[in-house]
């Protein structure tokens, strides 16, 4: 029979309590951080909300001289650049995931997968400086004149491609964002496709389906929640991305019907103007923009996580 020294046991119990509460408080701190972010942004944005009311999100004007601020132009820029990014990155990400799961020779699978993941590790400021000095001139010289010439007079969409080729602007920001979110979308889709049971795929092949038919009729329906989750995770990144966009967007607080024109986004407006903002209302309006961004991205990311989680649970339950 073991002999337990009661003093030793008591001491152990105290250590146990200390360690347990240390880990618990660290865990709760994570909750407090998110709560703190929400509260402090609301506190900082209060003067602007109080002054402009709900019309803040509906007005296009942005004039620091007369203290008139509205968020419509940044909201428009954020939505349009992100939509462009998704339009380009989702099909490309799907293609990369398809290549990695179905086509790639096993020997190359890991190096290419790692290369795609490394693209995700490149900091956003690098994408910004590259976008400004390399991508923007290429778009200005080769792509934008072509768009203006061939699509500028097309019915319905012609207005999107009018005006001079600035190089920087909404379109360039969308392209840079697409390159940035591409690895996230591709990696998530690849992981999701890998969870499809091989038996399902083999059954498809056994019936004589081609690779594409197995992909489109078996793998995609099976992993729909994960695909949408991955896309929304990428969308969350695109909406909140700051530095890369700030370099190439052109910082013009106006809504232009053309995609080639300069614009602004919520995050680039904050990054550009925050340290130079004089006056409480100016600073507060910028923080109100931050609050808007927080609400939008929180919703998108939370929805994405909920979908990916549902998939995980289904995976854990069997199949």
């Amino acid at each position: 029979m073991a002999i337990i020294d009661p003093r030793h046991a008591a001491k152990q119990l105290i250590y146990e309590r200390i360690f347990r509460s240390a880990t618990l408080s660290a865990a709760i701190l994570v909750l407090l951080i998110l709560g703190g972010v929400a509260v402090s942004l609301m506190h900082g944005a209060w003067p602007a909300i109080n002054h402009f009311g709900f019309s803040f999100v509906l007005r296009e004007i942005w004039n620091p001289v007369t203290d008139q601020f509205g968020a419509l132009a940044p909201i428009y820029g954020t939505v349009v650049t992100s939509a462009l990014a998704m339009l380009l990155a989702v099909p490309a990400g799907f293609g990369i995931a398809l290549f990695l799961t179905e086509l790639c020779p096993p020997l190359l699978k890991r190096p290419i997968g790692v290369a795609v993941e490394l693209l995700a590790a490149v900091p956003s400021i690098i994408f910004g400086i590259w976008g400004l000095f390399v991508l923007a001139p290429v778009l200005q010289r080769h792509v934008q004149p072509w768009l203006i010439h061939n699509l500028g007079h097309a019915p319905f969409i012609g207005g999107l491609f009018k005006g001079p080729p600035y190089g920087i602007g909404i379109l360039t920001a969308g392209v840079v964002l697409a390159i940035m979110v591409l690895p996230f979308i591709a990696a998530t889709m690849r992981d999701v496709f890998d969870t499809v049971p091989p038996m399902l795929k083999e059954s498809g092949y056994g019936l004589g389906a081609t690779t594409w038919e197995v992909m489109w009729n078996v793998v995609v329906p099976h992993s729909r929640a994960g695909i949408v989750g991955g896309i929304m995770l990428g969308l969350g990144r695109a909406l909140g991305e700051t530095m890369a966009v700030t370099f190439v967007i052109g910082n013009a607080h106006r809504i232009s019907s053309s995609l080639l024109a300069p614009g602004t986004t919520i995050s680039s407006a904050i990054a550009n103007e925050f340290t130079e903002a004089v006056g409480d209302l100016y600073t507060s309006s910028l923080i109100a923009l931050g609050l808007l961004l927080f609400c939008i991205t929180f919703t998108v990311i939370a929805a994405a996580q909920a979908m990916l989680r549902r998939l995980e649970r289904r995976g854990a339950a069997g199949l």
């Binding site: 972010v37 942004l41 900082g44 909140g240 961004l293 939370a302």
Partner: peptide, 24 residues
């Protein structure tokens, strides 16, 4: 809940964290 919030923080825009620390 903490796992969920942590995953949200993992992909939250970093500029928001900057604003938070600015205020704080």
């Amino acid at each position: 809940v903490i796992r969920f919030i942590n995953d949200v923080l993992l992909s939250a825009p970093s500029i928001i964290i900057g604003l938070f620390v600015y205020e704080l």
